[in-house]
Computed example of a mutant assay.
Amino acid sequence: MIARARLAATDVLVSRLSFGAAPIAGLFEPVGEEQAYEAVTAAWDAGIRTYDTAPHYGLGVSERRLGEVLRAQPRDSFTLSTKVGRLLVPYDGGGDDLAAGGFAVPATHRRVWDFSADGIRRSIEGSLERLGLDHIDIVYLHDPDEHEEWALREGYPALERLRAEGVVGAIGAGMNQAEMLTRFLTDTDTDVVLAAGRYTLLDQIALEALLPAAAARGRSVVAAAVYNSGILAEPRTGATYNYTTAPDALLTRARRIRHLAERHGTTLRAAALAFPLAHPAVASVLVGMRSAAQVRDTAEQFARPVPDDFWAELKAEGLLGDDVPVPVKEAV
C-alpha cells in the first residue's frame, strides 16, 4: 500500500501517489474500455488509493470508467476527487470531441461553464450518477481562469455549504496556473488546491507564493502534471512541455537532469515524482495514466530511491535553486 497523507485539517486521506483519470477517457488518442479497466485495476493493485477525475474528461467517460472499477471496492478504502464548473448538456450534432475538448470520444454532450450554486450541485449530482457512488471526497472548482469572480463569488461558497453539510469532505480549486490558486488559499477557507505543472523539476513558480501560502495556512497542495506533459518522462526530440513542443533550452535542461539521474543510478522519472513531495505542503503527486503498463512503471519509479548526492549535484550544477526543498533520506 502506498503511504497516505491527510489533507489540511480534514479527515480526508490521499495517497502520496494518485491516479489521474483523464487519459483513460481518450485524452488525445482513443482508449478502449478494456484498456481503461485494466489501468484502473492496475492502480488499485499497485496500492494507489486516490483517484482524480472530472466531467470534462471525455464528456463523462472518465467518471463512468473509473466508477466501474471503484464500485467493487469498499467505499471507505479509497479517496475520490472530481471537479465542477462545466456542466454536460446533451448534444446530437455528431462527430467527436477531439477539436472541442481534446478527447477521442463521440461528441454526445457540450460543455457549458457554470459556477453558480445550482450549477455546482447539478454537476455533483451528475458525477455521482456517472460514478455510481454515494459520495465524493474532494471537489475542485475546475479551471476558473476566465471566470475568477464568478467562481469566488458563487462557486466557492456553494462548495463551502456542501462541505458544512457533509456532502463532501474537502474543497478547493484545480488549475494550470499558480496565481489564482494562491488567491484561493489566501482569500477563502479552501482545504486543498490542485496545481498542474507548476511545481516540477522544470517549473517552480508555485514556490514563489502558492506553496508558502499553503504552508502558512495549514492547507494542502496536490502537485499534478509533474512530467510537464511529457518532457520529464522522456526528453526526446519533439517532446511536449505543457502540451506544446518543448523549447530547445528546456529540452537541453531536461536532458542534463536525466544524465545526472542516470549517473547516480536512478531515473529522470523517479526524480520528477519524488521532487514535489519534499515540500511540506504537498500531500500527493497526481499522474495521469492510460494503461496498466504505464501504471506499473509509474509505481515502480515512485518507489525507486533517488540518492541525496543527486539532489546536491543538481543544485551545484545550477539546475535547481539553492533554496528549493529536495527529498532527504531519514537517518536510520
Rank of each mutant, 00 (worst) to 15 (best):
A271S: 10
T10Y: 10
G172W: 09
Q301K: 14
A42K: 11
P90A: 13
D97Q: 02
D137W: 05
A209L: 05
G93A: 11
A42W: 01
G321E: 09
A158Q: 09
V287F: 04
L131F: 08
M1H: 12
P305V: 05
E38H: 11
I171L: 14
N228S: 02
R256E: 15
H147S: 10
K315S: 07
S229Y: 14
D11M: 03
M175C: 13
F103K: 04
A225N: 08
S18H: 01
G318K: 08
S127G: 03
E29C: 14
W113Y: 11
R75C: 03
L70I: 12
G265T: 11
D322R: 08
R236I: 13
R296T: 12
L87W: 06
Y57T: 09
G119M: 03
R153Q: 14
A214F: 05
R258S: 14
R16G: 01
P325W: 01
V167G: 02
V14R: 12
T108S: 15
S81C: 06
Y140T: 00
R4Q: 14
A213N: 05
M175N: 03
L17Y: 08
A39V: 07
L201W: 04
L201P: 05
L232W: 05
R258D: 15
A213W: 09
A216D: 15
G60Q: 14
G26E: 03
R6H: 10
A100S: 07
G67C: 07
V295W: 03
D189S: 15
D187Q: 14
R65P: 11
A178N: 02
V40P: 08
L273M: 01
E317G: 00
D308T: 12
P212G: 11
L320Q: 10
A178Y: 01
V12H: 11
L260S: 02
G32F: 12
A299T: 10
L141M: 13
V328H: 11
G32M: 14
L207R: 01
A21D: 05
G172H: 02
A43G: 09
S127P: 05
R161M: 02
D187V: 08
W150A: 13
E234Q: 14
G230W: 13
R130P: 00
D114W: 02
P74T: 08
R121N: 08
I231V: 15
G155E: 10
